[in-house]
Write a protein that binds this DNA or RNA. Structure first.
Lengths: 221, 221
DNA sequence: ACATACATGTAATGCGTTACATGATTAC
DNA sequence: GTAATCATGTAACGCATTACATGTATGT
């Protein structure tokens, strides 16, 4: 269960409440896992029942705040979960699925889909690169909290892997951007083919510039 | 509902049975969407009830085979679904999530995770590049079936977008490969740091070669 | 005879989304 | 006073996984 991994991982840096966890998943940590509070609160209660974490209840007047900290059993669970091999189950990506059916759409609709893809991942890249800079310059509060509780000789390791995981997200997002850009240029080529009343052969060559075999295949039928 | 999109998309190329759809999702089409047969059969029945598709029942002796074809309402549904903007909901990736917690693991365990990642995506790339070649050379049977039922002037468009979507998957997989390779070199650097009993500063510099600011941040605490 | 591929389902369980629901504190 | 933020939950529904369940046709 990855949700538990994510929650225990964050709690192991610093004890905090369900509300805090929700905020962090929304803001910074969401680059690897997200969850709504409707999933978080029950999961915390369940893990508490199982003895993985424990809540220290803080009161501000009437308001109750349940600050969870990870118990030994929780650390064991977390380590065990993290070391388990990942199960790579099938792909499920609506953006790419829709792209595989773009022949059903108008070129305007295709363009709109690619542009949305582009702007979504460009935003992600900006957000995550900002995070990377924060980690590199030591401005990240959650990282500082974690470093405080750690043996100084492990600091290098922590920072190296934190950066590595953020860079992974950035690299993937950049691949999506590159793909969307390629998609847009495919659209542009098809548009010019549509505009002129040229032969199919010439058209397919233009549509897949740099991929001569595509043009060959297209001209076959 | 993306499952419906995937099924209608495949059926629009060629009428086929739930069994066929399952096989295609497992083999070739799974690069964008996968589903087990326990999802496929009920989805087909439901779409039939709603008048999106219709089954022509074929009998081979006792055995019944329900071959579905897309009705006009189904085409409308498909086109409408494909043109709708994609909802980009939060990331959820256990591999990257685990990577963000690798400081909890031994370097051997980290290496194992990265190697598994690498080999999984290398396999994907091989499979998908084979598909791309099949499309480019006109050896793809499903593509040929689709081309037969289409206006020849749209062939270019179909092939261009098919290739584009496969290339998207390849590009993303290559980003994952590159990331895993980077992860492995991070592990290697940390290993050499661990082996020698050098200072933290020198260690962190080695661990993040080419990223001098990481070393600076690490040496701060 | 036996294995493999063909062929179609249901059921239980778990994960994820959206909506519903409530109330306290703080800053303006 | 009122809006934003803090704070914690439940419920209904839908989508996904795994296991259960059954039987036929075909090739060796």
């Amino acid at each position: 269960m990855s949700l538990r991994g994510a929650l225990l991982g964050l709690l192991s840096a610093e004890p905090m409440s369900g509300y805090d966890l929700n905020r962090i998943l929304d803001e910074t940590f969401g680059y690897v896992w997200t969850a709504p509070h409707s999933q978080i609160y029950p999961a915390l209660r369940q893990m508490e029942r199982e003895g993985l974490i424990q809540a220290d209840v803080q009161r501000t007047g009437e308001r109750e705040r349940r600050v969870y900290r990870v118990l030994d059993a929780g650390f064991d669970y977390l380590r065990k979960w993290a070391a388990e091999p990942v199960v790579y189950s099938g792909e499920r990506d609506s953006a790419h699925l829709k792209a595989s059916m773009m022949h059903l759409l108008s070129l305007d609709e295709c363009e709109a889909l690619f542009r949305a893809h582009l702007s979504y991942f460009r935003q992600r890249v900006v957000i995550w690169e900002t995070r990377i800079e924060a980690i590199e310059s030591g401005r990240s509060t959650i990282l500082r909290a974690r470093l405080k509780t750690m043996d100084p000789k492990d600091h290098t390791k922590l920072i190296a892997f934190k950066l590595c995981s953020y860079e992974g997200s950035v690299m993937r997002a950049k691949a999506e951007i590159e793909w969307a850009e390629r998609g847009l240029s495919t659209v542009a080529s098809l548009r010019s083919t549509e505009a002129s009343t040229e032969l199919d052969i010439a058209g397919s060559r233009a549509a897949r510039a740099g991929r001569p075999r595509a043009a060959t295949a297209a001209s076959k039928h």
